[in-house]
Amino acid sequence: MLKVKLVRSKIGCNPKQRATLVALGLRKIRQERSFEDNSVVRGMIRKVEHLVEVTES
């Protein structure tokens, strides 16, 4: 399982990065979501890695 937490604002990001955050379900700063560890989620996290904090549990 991966815990993904939005730690930086999406203001100033390009539209694809904003869409990735919406697809991950991260709308507000400090909001967390848990995901299964797979390549699709890893790729999405990679696109917005400068905005999120990831912990493995």
Rank of each mutant, 00 (worst) to 15 (best):
I11Y: 14
S39C: 00
K47F: 09
L51W: 03
L51Q: 04
N14T: 15
V54Q: 03
V40N: 08
V4G: 01
L24H: 08
I29T: 02
H50W: 10
R8Q: 06
I11P: 10
N38V: 07
I45H: 03
I45F: 04
C13H: 00
V7I: 15
I29F: 02
K10P: 08
T20V: 13
F35N: 08
M44H: 13
M44P: 14
T55Q: 04
E56H: 13
K3Y: 14
I11N: 11
M1W: 03
E56S: 12
Q17R: 05
K3H: 12
L2I: 15
G12S: 08
K28R: 13
L26T: 02
E53P: 13
L2Q: 07
K16C: 00
K16V: 14
M44I: 05
T55C: 00
R27V: 15
L21H: 01
G12K: 06
I11L: 07
K3V: 15
R18T: 13
S9Y: 05
K5D: 04
V48D: 04
V52H: 07
K47Q: 15
K5I: 05
S9H: 07
L6Y: 09
V22Q: 04
R30I: 05
V22G: 00
K3M: 11
N14K: 15
K3R: 13
Q31F: 11
R42A: 07
D37G: 02
I45M: 10
R42W: 14
L24V: 11
I29P: 10
S9M: 06
R27G: 06
K47C: 12
V52W: 11
R8Y: 04
R42V: 09
V7R: 01
R18Y: 02
R27Q: 11
R27S: 09
Q31N: 01
M44Q: 14
L51E: 08
S57T: 13
E36M: 12
I45V: 15
V54R: 01
I29G: 00
M44E: 10
R46V: 12
L26H: 01
L21M: 09
